Structure formats: C-alpha cells, structure tokens
Simulated assay, not measured.
Amino acid sequence: MRETRDLTDIGGRDDLDVLLRRFYGAAFADPLIGPFFTEIAGTDLEVHLPHIGDFWERALFRTAPYGRDALAPHAALHAARPLTPAHFGRWVQLWHATVDGRHRGPRADRAKAMGERIALSMLRRLGGPGAEREAATGGTGGFVPLAALTLRAAV
C-alpha cells in the first residue's frame, strides 16, 4: 500500500478507470453485494466499466456524456431481490475504502461524498415510504460508520 503522502487526487479518466476496476473487483468478490453483480445481474465487467466510468467522469469532471438512467438497473435488481440499507452501506464502505486506498484530495473527497448521496438517494427511491421516513428523520439507512471500517488496507 502507498504511503498517505504519495496519494494524489483523482486526476482524470485514467485514474477513474483504475479506481473503478479496483472497486468492482472488490464489490464482485464481496459476500454481501457480490451476488447482485455476479448471480442476479450477471454483470459483464468489461461492458459495465465504460458506462460507469462515463457516469463518474461526468459527475466529477463534467467532461463525459452520460444519458443513461442510473436508477433503472438498480430497480431491476431490487425487483429480483430487495436491496437493503445493509447492501447500500456495504457499497459505500467499499467505495470509500477504494478511493482512500488510491487517492487524497478534493476530487477524492467529492467522489466519496457523491457515492454516499447516490446510495442514500437510491435507497430512498427503492425502499419506499419507510426509507424516506428514516432518511427524513436523520436515520443512516443502516450504513456502518466509516470509522469502524477496516478494509482500507485490504482493497
């Protein structure tokens, strides 16, 4: 693992591609969320990565077109097997650990914050009134505090 002082901010698409490949490698192997990618969706990573790279490039740099509905594939997964707060929380954990393992800086911080907002938004939209109510009252949606995270060195 690189020393903290050697970590740089996310600089562009090349950094995003490496980051996303590393993240999805961990996500596919994860016992909690991996089956959504491997068994339910049957995700082909080589097909998926360019689209998700466009999403994150658009989100962080505003330089890539992205006209897809990011919620639609998650809604299809949710219909096949419900996505719970624990699933979204695990996604956020892995996302934070992956970003923190490779990058430091304002764009890295923004990527982590955006990941949390996106996960919570999807949870609310997929989870119905209960998720909306929990979020409205300041609930965490089952997210595990990142201070408890021990994955940084493993990802």
Score class of each variant (00 low, 15 high):
Arg2Ser: 13
Arg2Gly: 06
Gly11Cys: 11
Asp14Gln: 15
Leu16Ile: 12
Asp17Val: 14
Val18Tyr: 07
Arg21Ala: 07
Arg21Asn: 08
Tyr24Phe: 15
Ala26Cys: 12
Ala27Phe: 00
Pro31Ser: 09
Ile33Leu: 06
Ile33His: 02
Gly34Asp: 10
Gly34Met: 09
Phe37Thr: 03
Thr38His: 04
Thr38Glu: 10
Gly42Thr: 05
Asp44Pro: 05
Glu46Met: 09
His48Thr: 10
Ile52Phe: 03
Gly53Cys: 13
Gly53Met: 02
Phe55His: 11
Arg58Gly: 04
Ala59Ile: 06
Ala59Met: 14
Leu60Pro: 07
Leu60Cys: 10
Thr63Val: 07
Thr63Cys: 03
Ala64Thr: 04
Ala64Asn: 04
Pro65Tyr: 10
Gly67Thr: 05
Arg68Asn: 11
Asp69Asn: 13
Asp69Pro: 04
Pro73Phe: 04
Pro73Tyr: 07
Ala75Cys: 07
Ala76Ile: 02
His78Ser: 06
His78Lys: 11
His78Trp: 07
Ala80Leu: 10
Arg81Lys: 12
Arg90Leu: 09
Arg90Phe: 04
Trp91Gln: 08
Gln93Val: 01
Leu94Val: 09
Ala97Cys: 06
Gly101Phe: 01
Gly101Asp: 02
Arg104Lys: 10
Arg110Tyr: 08
Ala111His: 03
Met114His: 12
Gly115Pro: 01
Glu116Pro: 01
Ile118Asn: 06
Leu120Trp: 01
Ser121Phe: 06
Ser121Asp: 13
Met122Ala: 09
Met122Glu: 04
Met122Asn: 05
Leu123Cys: 02
Leu123Thr: 01
Arg124Gly: 12
Arg125Phe: 11
Leu126Pro: 13
Gly127Ile: 07
Gly127Leu: 08
Pro129Glu: 14
Pro129Trp: 15
Gly130Trp: 10
Glu132Ile: 12
Arg133Phe: 14
Glu134Thr: 08
Glu134Ala: 15
Ala136Tyr: 01
Gly138Phe: 07
Thr140Glu: 11
Gly141Arg: 14
Gly142Asn: 13
Val144Asn: 05
Val144Pro: 01
Pro145Glu: 14
Pro145Leu: 11
Pro145Arg: 11
Ala147Val: 08
Ala148Lys: 15
Thr150Pro: 00
Ala154Cys: 03
